[in-house]
Computed example of a mutant assay.
Amino acid sequence: MPKTLAIDFDGVIHAYSKGWQDGTIYDPPLPGSLEAIRSLMETYAVFIHTTRDAGAVAGWLADHGFDTVLDVDGPTHPKRQFWNDLGALLVTDRKLPAVAYIDDRGIRFTNWDQALTDLQDATQ
């Protein structure tokens, strides 16, 4: 079974140069992001997590050549608890279990003293 990798959308794939705005996906992909995702998908089950409308993100990624799967909640398609499929890119509004999370706003946790110091440094 492949290992799962999570990738944030805004600031990691989508340049996000103007911030949230009205939720519109207005920028092109960050240089190298699409190629990196394609490469990672050869080894990992990759999912994209976002606070945006997951359907809009899935459509944007499909427009850029990805086979996307939308994590929907409904009577015939309950939201997934895990993602372990190679070759398709899941798009969801949740952080599922993964071996690593690639995110532009993350703080790596090793202990609380370090985390609080890193948070203070990042917000100054």
Rank of each mutant, 00 (worst) to 15 (best):
Q124S: 03
G32K: 13
M41L: 06
E35C: 07
I107C: 10
R94E: 03
V12T: 15
R94C: 00
A88E: 12
A88N: 05
D53A: 06
P29Q: 09
D113G: 13
Y44E: 04
S39P: 15
R52T: 00
S33T: 05
G23D: 01
W20L: 08
D121M: 11
K79Q: 01
I37E: 02
F66K: 09
R105Y: 03
L5W: 00
D63Y: 12
E35I: 11
P2E: 04
T92E: 05
D93R: 14
I107Q: 13
L34T: 14
D73L: 00
P29Y: 11
V46F: 08
L34H: 13
D22S: 12
D118S: 15
D27F: 12
T43L: 01
D8S: 06
G59P: 14
K3A: 01
T51N: 10
L116D: 00
V69L: 10
S17K: 15
L116P: 14
G55W: 12
I102W: 11
T68I: 09
Y101P: 13
Q114C: 00
M41Q: 14
V46A: 04
F47W: 05
W83G: 07
D10E: 04
D71R: 15
A56P: 15
D73C: 10
L119R: 15
P29A: 04
G74T: 13
V72N: 10
V91I: 07
G74L: 07
A58W: 08
T68D: 09
L96T: 13
D63K: 15
R94Q: 03
S17Y: 08
D53T: 12
L90Q: 02
R38T: 06
V46I: 12
